[in-house]
């Protein structure tokens, strides 16, 4: 299904290969729950600057030794120098949450690199009742807030850090596709 209104305009984030910025004084690698191989090898290959590899717990599972809560992370970054670079790995929603935390702390997007998201799961924003839903894998998706069947668009809203969901077939909401489509 083609949902883009304007041909050629893509508002889905593109994740390009990440390289280390050799000039940064501090190199901060941040993983969600577990350190994926791609981040580990980026960390291992980083030779300039003082590096740290951090895990942030998001699952509620027992925090392995040294893992941080989001609040711990916020405290840590507050004392970093301006010459810092951040390399993020995890789900797309996680990385954007961390990016928000970093920009709130005064860093800018130039210093934040995101690896390719580790899953196809999307965070969805209902444009009707403003509910945010994580782990969305199929479209349409029934809104947990208002019960509408939402078409998951490829439009990623940086403000909500989520994909935009709009009611499918607004004219006749009963007319649903036979099967939900798996998101890529």
């Amino acid at each position: 299904m083609q949902v883009e209104m304007i041909p050629g305009v893509k508002s889905r984030p593109v994740y390009t290969p990440v390289t280390v910025n050799p000039r940064s004084q501090r190199q901060i690698f941040i993983a969600q729950d577990q350190i994926p191989a791609a981040l580990q090898s980026l960390y291992d290959g980083c030779e300039q600057g003082e590096k740290s590899l951090l895990t942030v717990v998001t699952t509620g599972a027992a925090a392995a030794g040294g893992a941080l809560s989001i609040d711990d992370l916020a405290q840590r970054v507050a004392s970093l120098p301006q010459s810092s670079s951040f390399y993020l790995a995890g789900s797309e929603a996680f990385m954007w949450d961390i990016a928000k935390l970093l920009t709130d702390a005064g860093f800018i997007s130039d210093q934040i690199a995101m690896l390719a998201p580790l899953s196809k799961e999307r965070r969805l924003f209902c444009t009707h009742c403003y509910t945010l839903m994580d782990h969305v894998t199929h479209s349409p998706h029934v809104c947990s807030g208002c019960g509408r069947a939402l078409l998951v668009r490829d439009h990623f809203s940086k403000i909500h850090r989520a994909y935009v969901g709009v009611q499918i077939n607004a004219e006749d909401p009963a007319d649903l596709p036979a099967a939900a489509e798996e998101l890529s």
């Binding site: 910025n21 000039r23 004084q25 600057g49 301006q82 670079s85 800018i108 997007s109 130039d110 210093q111």
Partner: peptide, 10 residues
């Protein structure tokens, strides 16, 4: 700034 690794965006 470049030598110190302060991003140009600042």
């Amino acid at each position: 700034a470049e030598a110190m690794g302060v991003p140009a965006g600042f």
